[in-house]
Design a protein around this nucleic acid. Structure first.
Lengths: 103, 103
DNA sequence: TGAGCATATAACTATATCGTTATACTGTCA
DNA sequence: TGACAGTATAACGATATAGTTATATGCTCA
């Protein structure tokens, strides 16, 4: 893998390395949602959620759609769930005694 | 996924979000290696590589083995390559025009 | 025991980013 | 047009971490 490719991959992992962003993605797995509803779902503030949604959008993980004055975001790259599955599987192996918290 | 699980997953992604650490993992894919050789391979400094190796080990991605006064590190969790493959695939789709740099 | 090599750690600077607060922007509706 | 709701952005403080330099630790061998 070339250095540029390594950097792009690292950036992708970095975007997924914030718990709040993972929570947002997890919530959006249920379907598209307005910023206000995402904010409520993840129990944060609107500006903070807005900022994180922008980061997720810049990386192509989510896409936005405007309707009136409300903006709806939805998952744009399903591979994130595959990534989480792989990580969870690995974590389950490593912390087999803690595996209960992964359901 | 519970909040604790989200945090553990986020931590895992964070460890993989540094280009140098990805380079180290990529190099170790060829087999175990001493710290000195890793340092040369990734073109960094010994203390820096040592620090990153510790981070990778704490997360269970690599394991160490001491022989005399040299320490050998090797991959301890093959799932990282699966993760990189998924990310690369997703990136290829997104930047299809740039896909050449991924080989 | 003492020199020298390999690795780890400590202390530091610089940079990045999270979350907050305040405010700007944009669209709707009376 | 004016008020308000939804979203985005700017500015700020606080925290975290990458990389460097210096040094400590631990092993080997003469």
């Amino acid at each position: 893998m070339s250095p540029e490719a390594v950097n792009l991959v690292a950036t992708r992992f970095k975007v997924l390395s914030e718990p709040l962003r993972l929570q947002i993605l997890q919530y959006l797995e249920n379907g598209e949602s307005s910023v206000t509803n995402v904010t409520k779902a993840v129990n944060s503030t609107q500006p903070n959620v807005s900022k994180h949604l922008k980061i997720l959008q810049d990386e192509g993980f989510v896409a936005k759609r405007q309707e009136g004055n409300t903006v709806f975001y939805k998952i744009a790259d399903e591979s994130i769930f595959e990534l989480c599955d792989v990580v969870c599987g690995s974590l389950k192996e490593r912390y087999s005694e803690k595996s209960a918290i992964f359901g």
